[in-house]
């Protein structure tokens, strides 16, 4: 149970939040080609490294926010060692 620093609530157990995965910009649906759209839907960088990801503070403030987490270590930027 890692600790996720919610910008509103402070450090919370990750089980109190929902991880929404890697941040992927949403193309404009009125102009995006199907190929671009499906890259947005399915393709992920999935690095073993720092990744910007979205969390939803389901059990706390109910805000969406992004953090940077290292998927190789679960270290979160701005937070002390794991």
């Amino acid at each position: 149970m890692i600790v996720v620093p919610c910008p509103n609530c402070g450090p919370r157990n990750s089980g109190d939040l929902r991880n929404c995965g890697e941040l992927v910009p949403r193309p404009d649906p009125s102009t995006a080609s199907l190929v671009e759209w499906r890259e947005y839907l399915y393709m992920r960088k999935n690095p073993a490294d720092w990744v910007t990801e979205t969390w939803y503070c389901r059990g706390g403030c109910r805000r969406y926010f992004t953090i940077e987490r290292n998927t190789a270590t679960n270290e979160i930027r701005g937070q002390e060692a794991s």
Partner: peptide, 13 residues
């Protein structure tokens, strides 16, 4: 696990 990671430490929950 719901959270993607390359870490294989396992969790208590």
């Amino acid at each position: 696990d719901p959270v993607g990671t390359y870490r294989v430490n396992g969790t208590l929950e």
